[in-house]
């Protein structure tokens, strides 16, 4: 076994046993939220990092997944374990529908279109009261287990989704599809001229990229037991996905993971040390500006270039 495989395996084992060795539930709670953001970031990475189409509205997919689970569980009593993947499918379906008009757009136009669509979805969720409960939000039934078991179950659901997302990205990176996506990012016209079906490839990337955030959106709704439009369609979710990935390294497998691990901790510390509203996002956007100006390839890219460390 190579050294990399041993590290990955050790990390996996550690994450699996964390809920049993953690002294307080707080750390489990913290980790599961970190996993959630990592999934959204890794999902964003597929369309933003690999394909070069910066979506500024990934919160839309998260929110759609959350509402799918909330509506099905609260109103129809469907088992949440069915609704989680279903939320992902709904998000992917939405990506399919909006992909048709938006994926033809280049660069910043795509960013503007996705940003607007996520705002539009929030307004819709606020006003389609019969379906979404409007501004009052939706309350889900409490999970049937005690708090400790519930958090553990949610933790493992998030961990499984995270593992699936990372595995997908890894396989994508190794496959011809991943190569095609990178090709589109570097030069779309050239990609087309060597026979890559760019439309098809972009759709694959966009659908995959929407699916995983949709799944964790559903898990989040079940975990929070209450959702409303400003929480699940929060523009800061899209922003986190972009900044986490860019900080770690866009278009790399490990980038979103490293970026989320570091920046989510920073964000939490900022929020706990100075509790005046606005402070955490101030720190956060300052970090983002610094990355864009001075470290455009992210941590992984810098490690690769300057220190010759090979990271996937």
């Amino acid at each position: 076994m190579s050294r990399n495989k041993i590290i990955v395996l050790a990390l996996m084992v550690l994450l699996v046993i964390v809920p049993f060795i953690s002294p307080e539930l707080f750390y489990v709670d913290f980790l599961l939220l970190m996993f959630m953001y990592t999934v959204i970031a890794a999902g964003w990475n597929i369309i933003g990092g690999y394909t070069g189409y910066y979506s500024f509205g990934h919160t839309a997919f998260f929110g759609l997944g959350a509402y799918t689970t909330a509506i099905l569980v609260a109103k129809y009593g469907v088992s949440p374990f069915i609704t989680f993947p279903l939320g992902g499918l709904v998000a992917a379906l939405f990506a399919f529908v909006i992909g048709y008009p938006t994926l033809r757009l280049k660069g910043a136009y795509f960013a503007i279109a996705t940003l607007s669509l996520s705002f539009a979805l929030q307004i819709l969720a606020l006003n389609l009261t019969p379906i979404t409960g409007g501004g009052e939000g939706l309350t889900l039934p409490l999970p049937p287990w005690d708090i400790h078991t519930t958090i553990m179950i949610i933790y493992y659901m998030m961990l499984i989704t995270l593992a699936a997302t990372v595995a997908t990205t890894y396989l994508l990176e190794k496959s011809r599809i991943g190569l095609a996506l990178k090709c589109i990012r570097d030069d779309e016209i050239a990609a087309e001229s060597v026979g890559i079906n760019t439309t098809m490839m972009k759709f694959i990337a966009f659908l995959l990229s929407a699916f995983f955030p949709g799944v964790v959106g559903g898990i989040f709704a079940y975990y929070a037991t209450y959702i409303d439009p400003p929480t699940v369609f929060d523009p800061r979710i899209s922003m986190f996905a972009i900044v986490f990935t860019m900080f770690g390294g866009a278009g790399t497998v490990t980038g979103p993971i490293i970026g989320s691990a570091i920046l989510f901790t920073v964000d939490l510390l900022a929020r706990y040390t100075i509790t005046i509203p606005g402070f955490d996002l101030m720190v956060f956007s300052a970090i983002a500006i610094t990355i864009i100006l001075f470290m455009p390839h992210g941590l992984v890219g810098t490690l690769r270039e300057k220190f010759k460390i090979k990271l996937p």
Binding site: G107, A111, M239, I289
Partner: peptide, 10 residues
């Protein structure tokens, strides 16, 4: 665009 979006957030 990303930079200016982050400036806006800041």
């Amino acid at each position: 665009f990303t930079l200016l979006y982050m400036v806006a957030m800041f």
